[in-house]
Design a protein around this nucleic acid. Structure first.
Lengths: 183, 183
DNA sequence: ACTATTACCGAACAATATATTCCATAACAA
DNA sequence: TTGTTATGGAATATATTGTTCGGTAATAGT
């Protein structure tokens, strides 16, 4: 990719993230973004169709590789709930957040966290669905499978939100324990 | 309240609801609303500061009395999870939704359901917190109280969303059973 | 090093939406 | 009946979006 493209793309992302940490997504204007990123108006629209696509692309950039990495870990074959072994996938995710990989922490903690958590949820759903066998046995018989998947996923997201709202005062291990107890 | 005020207020709400069932909140313009409600522009802004306040007021109007009614039912003193007695508060809520009281169903099922579910969640949280004693004993010891409250509430909301997305094919009783099993 | 390609700037632009203001009119409450 | 209040309708200032265009500079391939 052209170095110029890379630079403007990153400048826009950086400006966007800074603005997101200060104000609501809907009140951020393209004018503000390009002023802060110091790029021309036409340039912005050459990169991103609309402001919503910018958000989508940012989420993709931040989260996609995280889930890819998680699915390709060597311990992927072990049980997803096997937490004593420190192999639990969810523990890994909580760790990623705490380590603030790729500014995830800043984005998930800002006023717009709902936006990102929604996107995050898609990734979690795929992850849970791919490890379905690991926790099939724990599912109460009456519950439909997709209800169960949604419940696991939603519980994870809500646990994460709860943790972030309280400034991550608990260790990732404790939070993972909370999550597993709840589910 | 002046009859004229009431009429315009209801006309605006009605038009707004109709538009919400067809298109995204952010793509609805004040121009469309007043055209459909057949009121003047100045009139709209005399009633609602912005479009966001309109949404907020609509939510308040629809949900607040619902929760008030729920908290003041004669069986309010019985156990919140006592579902065999058909006294379960959650069963009542699912029934309200299915009966489409106050067009709740239309709003919760529309493209913007996230907006309403978010507002809905506040009411549920209050409800759960006020009935805390009923399910305190079911809580695993390690979990903090507010984590537990949030988990119950979130599970309810997610169950509701799941139900609505599948066109409420299950009976309220079955959905309540799913919810209780999950939690 | 030369050349063709590509990205950029910046300004101007049309189109759209917001929110306010004014005044005449009609509905209301007492 | 009378004073008050809500409404209608139009005009308006303001702001934002997304597009277009020509000139300039960085880049990649040879």
């Amino acid at each position: 990719m052209d170095r110029r493209q890379r630079k403007t793309r990153e400048a826009i992302f950086k400006a966007f993230i800074l603005l997101l940490s200060k104000k609501n997504f809907h009140s951020i204007t393209v004018g503000e973004i390009i002023a802060l990123a110091d790029v021309g108006r036409a340039t912005f629209y050459a990169h991103f169709e609309t402001k919503d696509f910018l958000l989508k692309d940012l989420c993709a950039e931040l989260f996609d590789h995280l889930f890819d990495a998680e699915e390709n870990t060597p311990n992927a074959s072990s049980n997803m709930f096997d937490c004593d072994m420190h192999d639990c996938v969810f523990l890994h995710l909580f760790n990623h957040v705490q380590n603030n990989d790729n500014n995830i922490r800043k984005l998930l903690s800002c006023k717009n966290n709902t936006l990102f958590l929604e996107y995050f949820k898609n990734g979690i759903t795929r992850l849970v669905a791919s490890h379905l066998a690991d926790f099939q046995e724990k599912k109460p018989d009456v519950l439909p499978e997709d209800f169960w998947i949604n419940h696991i996923t939603a519980t994870f997201i809500e646990t994460l939100r709860w943790w972030l709202e309280r400034d991550m005062q608990q260790s990732p291990e404790v939070i993972t324990e909370y999550f597993l107890q709840a589910v």
